[in-house]
Design a binder for these strands. Sequence first.
DNA 1: CTTCATACGTAGCTACGCTACTTGTCGAAC
DNA 2: GTTCGACAAGTAGCGTAGCTACGTATGAAG
Lengths: 112, 112
Amino acid sequence: MKAQALHGHLDALLLAVLEQGALHGYAIIEALRARSDGSLDLPTGTIYPALRRLERAGHVASTWSTVSGRERRTYQLTDSGRRALAGERAGWREFQLTVGRFLDPGSPPTPA
Amino acid sequence: MKAQALHGHLDALLLAVLEQGALHGYAIIEALRARSDGSLDLPTGTIYPALRRLERAGHVASTWSTVSGRERRTYQLTDSGRRALAGERAGWREFQLTVGRFLDPGSPPTPA
DNA sequence: CTTCATACGTAGCTACGCTACTTGTCGAAC
DNA sequence: GTTCGACAAGTAGCGTAGCTACGTATGAAG
């Protein structure tokens, strides 16, 4: 799918992925790809800065570790992040309904 | 709703509104507000440039007219615009499904 | 005669995802 | 023993596109 359409919803996706458990950046990319059947294949230049944003905002916390010689920064959801995710879910629902009213088939196009 | 979340979907909304009949810019703003129950209240600085974009792309065509002393630029969908709208609808559907898989309740969060 | 709704428009800002790049380890292939 | 691809992190700079804040002008209402 057109990737840039994500605008404004990426944070929500990241929080949602981390909701199921802490992951490091590279694993997050793979999780997004897997759970979307390949539709979401985001470059590192997209998700790493996004994760830093979320950390600055206090929605995730990170810890470094070394696994078989490779450095990993593992991110986990904070309480603030969980609240933010709830808000994002509500926002998504409203967005979906609003846009769907125009783009979903069978929407009210001057109903008969 | 958070307005900037529209990023990438505004063109689709405009085409969808014009699908029901030609309208001038100001009327498009009101149509969006009405059909969304006030959720979409877009400033002129958003929709006028967007309409110019769509016209440059050949998806709409405009004609000037004067109604009770006021200049109006009325936009109507072209064939190209109708095709574009169909594409946007398909894109929206995919986007909705993909993001929904992460944000809709009851999505597969490592299903039991 | 001032204010508000109608109607058009642009300049400049900002947010944010993307492209392209760099650095480094490890295992497998050759 | 070197090269190549998967793993793992990161930044600089770009482009897109919606938003803020203006500016202009008419007609109706008070």
